[in-house]
Design a protein around this nucleic acid. Structure first.
Length: 229
DNA sequence: ACCACGATGAACT
DNA sequence: GTTCATCGTGGTC
């Protein structure tokens, strides 16, 4: 792979991979804290991914916009299960959308990942998307899954274990302290997301009910966030 | 069994 | 700003 070993090693390090305790909390809190974390698909030999810049929180019975608002159905039952598993569903006849399950088991919740700044394996993403502009590559939940090659077989994957090939990692910027100049560019991106940050919130996108809740979160000013600006 | 509609995106006017 | 492709899901009959 074309990335410094040190970086690959850190991303796949167990202590940096977000675990069940991280996801087993209030959904909006998890959504906020996922901003600036690294979404990775693949293994240490070959992987794609980038930094999460936009997501949305979905709850259960009291959230009319949620798939879980009427209780568990064959599709939504996964939202009631173990925190940290992937909920991937097919939408509008064209798109797969990626969520991470949150809250304690039996309590429904999930965070929809809406956009990343693509950094790792961008060549692969460009191939899948037929789009070159990095700003547009993984902007919007349908574009993001297409760029990363996520489809229905990813539903139910355990995102707290890199063995399932899909996870979200934090990182420790101090590990990159005395690195050579050739890694300067990529390390500056890690620094950028380490120092977040102003988080903005808004109404969620594409829903007709529950629009009063400000449950969409994004990094203010990021060019990789979907929508008008 | 039926059918309206969507946690979208692209291509239009 | 509007339209529309496309099909799985789930509420309704």
């Amino acid at each position: 792979m074309d990335f410094p070993k040190k970086i690959t090693k850190q991303l796949f390090k167990r202590k940096n991979i977000l675990d069940e305790d991280f996801y087993s909390r209030d959904t909006a809190t998890v959504a906020r804290e996922l901003l600036g974390k690294v979404l990775i698909i693949g293994d240490e030999e070959s992987y794609c991914g980038g930094f999460i810049v936009e997501d949305e929180a979905y709850y259960g019975l009291n959230d009319p916009a949620s798939h879980a608002c009427n209780g568990a159905t064959p599709r939504s039952k996964i939202m009631f299960e173990k925190p940290g598993i992937a909920y991937v569903y097919f939408c509008y006849g064209n798109h797969y959308l990626l969520n991470v399950v949150t809250e304690k088991p039996t309590i429904p919740g999930a965070v929809l990942i809406r956009a990343i700044e693509p950094v790792f394996g961008t060549g692969e993403m460009i191939k899948r998307r037929q789009v070159k502009d990095p700003e547009r590559l993984a902007k919007g939940p349908g574009n993001l899954t297409k760029a990363l090659g996520i489809e229905k077989s990813f539903n139910g994957k355990n995102m707290t274990d890199f063995k399932d090939g899909l996870f979200i990692a934090g990182f420790d910027i101090s590990d990159f302290n005395n690195d050579s100049k050739k890694n300067e560019e990529i390390i500056s991106i890690f620094k950028k997301y380490n120092e977040i940050k102003e988080i903005s919130s808004s109404s969620r996108v594409g829903i007709k009910q529950g629009t009063e809740s400000m449950l969409r979160f994004y990094i203010k000013g990021s060019r990789f966030v979907s929508g008008k600006n």
